[in-house]
């Protein structure tokens, strides 16, 4: 199964983990800000007021940055690492930065597009179709092959497919 396109369950679980990571980071940022405020003015300390708009914007930006960095570097975020998935170009190479950014923006803006892979015969989500990327099973902890390097599927894996 290694190298084949992943199905909806694996991708959904991976995205859920990524979402949890981003929300945890958001909470961490909130407490860091509160701590800094306490250190600056301990007597006049009060918890920072939460604004849904600000928080949502911050979370959205955080999510886009997180996904872009993960996909453009190793092809996987923390959630995809756990599930053994990797986002690659259609030829199996690493996805370029701008296309990674575009895919991240699309995922953050239209997350429900993920579920198109349920009916897609190619296991492709809406974002995959737009950005021309694919998500494959890849359990090996290594970087995706570069454009000049031999293709991903030809590299023998040390592990037998489950």
């Amino acid at each position: 199964m290694q190298g084949r396109r992943a199905g909806v369950i694996s991708r959904f679980l991976a995205d859920a983990i990524d979402l949890i990571v981003v929300l945890a980071s958001l909470a961490a940022i909130y407490f860091v800000i509160a701590g800094i405020r306490f250190l600056i003015r301990p007597r006049a300390f009060s918890w920072p007021e939460l604004s849904a708009l600000n928080l949502g914007t911050l979370g959205w930006i955080l999510l886009i940055a997180y996904l872009t960095l993960g996909w453009a570097n190793t092809g996987r975020t923390f959630g995809k690492t756990v599930l053994g998935l990797r986002v690659v170009d259609l030829d199996g190479t690493r996805l370029p930065f701008w296309r990674s950014l575009a895919r991240a923006v699309l995922c953050a803006a239209f997350p429900i597009g993920l579920f198109w892979c349920v009916v897609s015969s190619q296991n492709a989500s809406v974002q995959d179709l737009i950005v021309r990327s694919e998500v494959v099973y890849d359990w090996e902890p290594r970087l995706p092959v570069d454009h000049d390097a031999p293709r991903f599927a030809t590299v023998p894996t040390g592990r037998s497919p489950a």
Binding site: M1, A6, G7, V8, I9, S10, L13, V82, L83, G84, V118, V119, N123, Y137, W139, A162
Partner: peptide, 19 residues
């Protein structure tokens, strides 16, 4: 992680076949 990966992979295939 191995267990999660295998089970999610099987779930993927089951969903795909059903659909």
């Amino acid at each position: 992680v191995g267990g999660i990966r295998v089970q999610s992979m099987n779930a993927d295939r089951a969903i795909s076949r059903l659909v």
